[in-house]
Simulated scan of single mutants.
Amino acid sequence: MSTVSTRAPAPAERKADGPRPARRRAGVREKQWPAYVFLSPWLLGAGVLTLVPMVASLYLSFTDYNLFDPPQWVGLRNYTEMLTEDPRYWRSVGTTMLFVVVAVPLKLGLALGVAMLLRSLGSGRGFYRSAFYAPSLLGASMSIALVWKALFNDGGTVAEVLGWVGIDTGGWVGDPYLAVYAVVLLTVWQFGAPMVIFLAGLQQIPSDLYEAAALDGAGRWRQFVSVTVPMLSPVVFFNLVLEIINSFQVFTPAFAISGGNGGPADSTMFYTLYLYERGFTASHMGYAAAMAWLLLIAIGAITLILFRTSRSWVFYADEEGR
């Protein structure tokens, strides 16, 4: 009797247990639908304003389109012409690469140096932090770029100041060898955003590490190399990725300083400026779309390389126990 009474209810119990996962999944879906309702404006915007234009530009990159007539399918002609028959395209690539290689290290180095100085200040830190961050609030506006052009033009303030100390450079804007560096200095001058991020990262480094390094006889430089750099490496990596991506997309300073033509002698013909010229000045929108997609692929490849190589030099504190 005891055996029968113990085993008899088993089928009924199994039947009762059967639909529980389905009911549980239904309950989870009922709880999730309000989230999708609140996310719907963002999802709609991402689809209409981002995904649909990206698909359209990908199609246009394989066409001959002049903004007025219907696009004509030409296959890979835009890409082959760009890579094999257009010397100005490669000059724009070289100018952009020069800008990235020079501007990004200078900007990050200046931002880190100022952040370390601000961390050591006892009083007035808030004022100086706001003062150094102020240029970044102006952004890449056309008005600031035009003021910068006036400063570096022939007879401008920079040429006069350098002339007082015996350095005769003339106007940077009209010099094919110096015009690109005027754009570099404008970008480096707006170092406030990475500076604030560096300052936040520096404040998270425990002071005990510096005290222990000092007890071991480490000087300021050794503390910087052995303590500050490893502990700050995730912040350095974050700023490096953002600045490289932004530098490849520089447009407004180059447009304003060159007058929109990339001069003199294409020395400020950045990639995005040439893309703009081909798409909206020459009305070769299919060619410009192909340029945009190659830029996207290049930025994606460089970002992937940075993430892969970061494993060898980026230190995360939570990896100690792994």
Rank of each mutant, 00 (worst) to 15 (best):
A103N: 13
A103Y: 07
A103D: 05
V104E: 13
L106T: 09
L106F: 09
K107Y: 05
L108A: 13
G109H: 06
L110Y: 01
A111L: 09
A111T: 09
G113R: 00
V114D: 04
V114E: 03
A115M: 06
M116H: 09
M116T: 10
L117C: 11
R119P: 09
R119M: 10
R119F: 06
R119V: 12
S120A: 15
L121G: 08
L121P: 08
L121I: 08
G122K: 09
G122R: 10
G122W: 03
S123Y: 09
G124D: 05
G124S: 06
G124H: 02
R125D: 01
R125Y: 03
G126R: 13
G126V: 13
R129G: 12
S130A: 15
S130N: 15
S130K: 08
A131P: 09
A131S: 13
F132M: 03
F132R: 02
F132E: 12
Y133Q: 02
Y133P: 04
Y133S: 04
A134I: 13
S136P: 01
S136M: 02
S136A: 11
S136F: 01
L137Q: 00
L138V: 14
L138I: 14
G139W: 00
A140F: 02
S143W: 05
S143K: 02
I144N: 11
I144T: 15
L146Y: 10
V147T: 14
K149Y: 10
K149C: 01
K149I: 06
A150E: 07
L151Y: 06
L151T: 03
L151N: 02
N153Q: 13
N153K: 03
D154F: 14
G155T: 05
T157C: 05
T157W: 15
A159H: 10
E160T: 09
E160K: 04
E160H: 06
L162D: 01
L162H: 04
G163K: 11
G163A: 14
G163T: 03
W164C: 03
W164S: 11
V165F: 13
V165L: 07
G166N: 09
G166L: 08
T169H: 02
T169E: 08
G170T: 05
G170I: 07
G171L: 14
G171T: 14
G171C: 14
W172D: 08
W172K: 06
V173L: 06
G174H: 06
G174I: 07
D175F: 04
D175L: 04
P176E: 03
P176F: 01
P176A: 01
P176N: 01
Y177R: 15
L178C: 08
A179T: 11
V180S: 07
V180P: 00
Y181I: 00
Y181S: 01
Y181A: 00
A182M: 09
L185K: 02
L186I: 02
T187V: 11
T187A: 15
V188R: 08
V188K: 04
V188D: 00
V188W: 05
W189K: 04
W189M: 02
Q190T: 11
Q190E: 01
Q190M: 14
Q190W: 04
F191R: 06
F191N: 06
G192P: 10
A193N: 09
P194Q: 07
M195S: 11
M195K: 12
M195E: 05
M195C: 12
F198E: 11
L199T: 08
A200Q: 01
A200Y: 01
G201A: 10
G201I: 07
